[in-house]
């Protein structure tokens, strides 16, 4: 009851409302109407307004509605995985694709899931190798590669 303002659900509603507001304001940077038809700014203004109103409605219904006391899962693991993804993507441009992707899997297997080292290394290695085979060799996708990638 007390923390209704702080729930994630409410956070989403407020977030969408702000996004809608941003679009409403931003739409005025573009011409709204030209000649016979709406111009670039018209629909962004409409969408922004709609999203704002709908999100406010959702927020209000959450505020006045019955609180859903739902047991939610702990966040730690998901946040760890998310952080690992951020680190991996940040490093892609510098140290190529395959090493970070291998590292991502090893990190999750060993640190997050506490799985045995040898098996983790074999699985992660095999997956990385098959990704390299399919994407680099078969499809010749120019993944950012560095000297120690193959």
């Amino acid at each position: 009851m007390k923390h209704r303002l702080l729930t994630g659900d409410m956070g989403f509603a407020v977030g969408w409302a702000l996004l809608g507001l941003y679009w409403m304001v931003g739409a005025f940077d573009y011409p709204l109407w030209s000649g016979f038809a709406p111009d670039s700014g018209f629909l962004p203004l409409v969408y922004g307004t709609l999203l704002f109103l709908l999100s406010v409605a959702v927020a209000l219904s959450l505020w006045f509605g019955e609180a859903e006391e739902e047991e939610r899962e702990p966040l730690t693991k998901s946040l760890l995985v998310l952080a690992a993804l951020v680190v991996v993507v940040a490093s892609l441009g510098f140290i190529g694709f395959l090493l970070p992707v291998f590292g991502l899997m090893m990190f999750i297997y060993l640190y997050v899931e506490k799985l045995p080292l040898l098996r983790s290394a074999v699985v992660a290695g095999l997956v990385t190798a098959s990704l390299a085979l399919v994407f680099v060799h078969w499809l010749s996708i120019p993944l950012p590669l560095v000297t120690w990638d193959f």
Partner: peptide
């Protein structure tokens, strides 16, 4: 799930070769 994440990243990159 770790390989799923890896496939998502590589697949999405290859769509437009874009980091």
């Amino acid at each position: 799930y770790p390989p799923i994440l890896a496939i998502c990243l590589v697949g999405v990159f290859s769509q437009a070769n874009s980091l």
